[in-house]
Amino acid sequence: MLSLRGVRKRYGEREALALERFEAAAGEHWLVLGPSGCGKTTLLHLLAGLLSPSEGEIEVAGERLDRMNGARLDRWRGRTVGLVPQKLHLVPSLTVEQNLLLAPYLAGLAPEPARARALLADLGLAAKARARPAELSHGEQQRAAVARAVMNRPKLLLADEPTSNLDDAACEAALALLQSQANACGATLVVASHDRRAAARFDRQLRLGE
């Protein structure tokens, strides 16, 4: 489902990521561990096709990302990958429900208001559907961002530092939510974190920068 070979990402002289080999099968849950600055976010962005590698091969869901670009890559990403960025980045001028509906719209898929409502109800956000992101608590915002990431039933679900600034209970809940949502749409899950509390929930781990 996912494989990287000899991937390097350089910014000028600085090497942000060097990864000889990483493979994940469909439906697996992976944790990418490592200190900050070790290239975890770069790896996620490479997997999402937001960055292209300086060298090496990246294959995700049967597509060679290092050979795709432009509008085709954008379209593929919108339909195949769901990303929960560290800072969540819900669109502030839209309601929570509109934020969810943005995903199929921008990916060029049919609008699915019923799915958006079901997901919001599932994640306990039904009452907040028409609220603006700024009116939500941090936990609610995170759930909304996860809902948006899985709106299009992605094959690959990525989350960047989902547990930062969370207490133990919230940390557990956030990871459980990601895993259950990944399972619900049969997606491969890759979570990047420097949080050792996360390690307990993942059998498969990739250590960077060690």
Partner: peptide
């Protein structure tokens, strides 16, 4: 985020 969600 819009680019992330598939907007060209």
């Amino acid at each position: 985020i819009m680019r992330m969600l598939g907007a060209g």
